[in-house]
Amino acid sequence: MDEAKILDLIKEALNDVAPGREADFAKVTLTSTIEDLGLDSIATMEMVGYLEEQVDATFPDEDLAKVSSIMDLTALVRASQT
């Protein structure tokens, strides 16, 4: 899966977790930070759960703890696909 596809998937996950904020999430890019998303810790992990289901993987907790940008998250998704 290439980066653009993963980014689309992340946006899909965001819209699932926080419906009604499509306009905000449309602006998300690879360089956006996790804080830019404006989600609390529970909603952030819900979003991760959605991603995991779509790509059929479980991201290790210790790797998630180190994620600070959308780029990092994208790398995690890619790593799970190899």
């Binding site: 996790i34 804080e35 952030t44 992990m45 991760v48 907790d61 210790e62 703890a65 994620v67 600070s68």
Partner: peptide, 9 residues
């Protein structure tokens, strides 16, 4: 508690 969430280590 363990570091559970993203981006605040």
């Amino acid at each position: 508690y363990p570091p559970l969430s993203m981006g605040n280590l």
